[in-house]
Computed example of a mutant assay.
Amino acid sequence: MDPVLPDLDLDRRDEPRPDPDLRASLVAWLQHQRHEFQRKWRDLSPEQLAEWSIPPVELSVLGLVRHMQQMEHAYLSWGLGGGDRVEAYGDDDYAGGSAETAGEDLRLYLDEVARADAAIESTPTLETVGRGHGDPLGHTLIKMIDEYALHSGQAHMLRFAALGTLER
Rank of each mutant, 00 (worst) to 15 (best):
T165H: 11
G96R: 00
S45P: 08
H67R: 00
W52C: 11
M71F: 14
G81F: 10
H32T: 10
K143S: 13
R42L: 11
R85K: 13
E112N: 07
A161R: 06
F160H: 13
W52Q: 15
G83D: 03
Y148F: 12
V27R: 09
S45Q: 07
D146M: 08
A95Y: 03
D91Q: 13
P46V: 05
D7G: 07
R13Y: 12
L137Y: 06
T123G: 04
P20V: 10
G103K: 00
T165I: 09
A119G: 06
L166F: 13
G153W: 00
Q38L: 15
L80G: 04
A119Q: 05
D111F: 05
G134P: 04
S60G: 10
Q70E: 08
Q38G: 07
A116L: 00
S122T: 07
S152G: 04
H133T: 14
V86Y: 03
Q38D: 13
L30T: 11
L110H: 06
L26S: 07
G134E: 02
Y75A: 10
R168D: 14
F37M: 03
R115K: 05
G97E: 00
A161V: 04
M1T: 11
M157T: 14
A118M: 02
L30A: 11
D84F: 07
E47D: 11
L76K: 05
A88M: 14
R39C: 10
L126H: 05
D117S: 02
V27C: 09
D14R: 11
P124N: 02
P55E: 12
D21H: 07
T165L: 11
R23Q: 04
G130D: 03
Q70W: 07
A88R: 15
L166V: 15
W52S: 13
Q70D: 10
P55T: 09
P124Q: 09
H67C: 01
I120W: 02
W41D: 02
L80T: 08
V86A: 04
D93S: 04
L106W: 06
W52E: 13
A162K: 01
S25E: 15
Y109S: 05
D14A: 14
R131L: 13
Q31K: 11
M157H: 07
G90K: 05
L126G: 12
A114P: 07
D43M: 08
A50C: 06
E15K: 12
G83A: 05
R13N: 11
W41E: 01
D91L: 12
L26T: 08
H151G: 03
P136R: 00
A149D: 08
P124V: 05
H139K: 14
D105L: 02
P56D: 08
M71K: 12
R23N: 04
R13V: 10
W41G: 03
R85D: 11
D11P: 07
Q69Y: 04
D43P: 04
I54F: 05
L137T: 06
V4A: 15
L62F: 06
A102C: 00
S122C: 09
V65Y: 03
P56G: 04
L8F: 08
F37P: 02
G134D: 03
P16T: 01
E100S: 03
V27E: 14
R34Y: 02
P56I: 04
D14Q: 12
A155M: 03
H35M: 05
D2I: 08
G96M: 01
R13A: 11
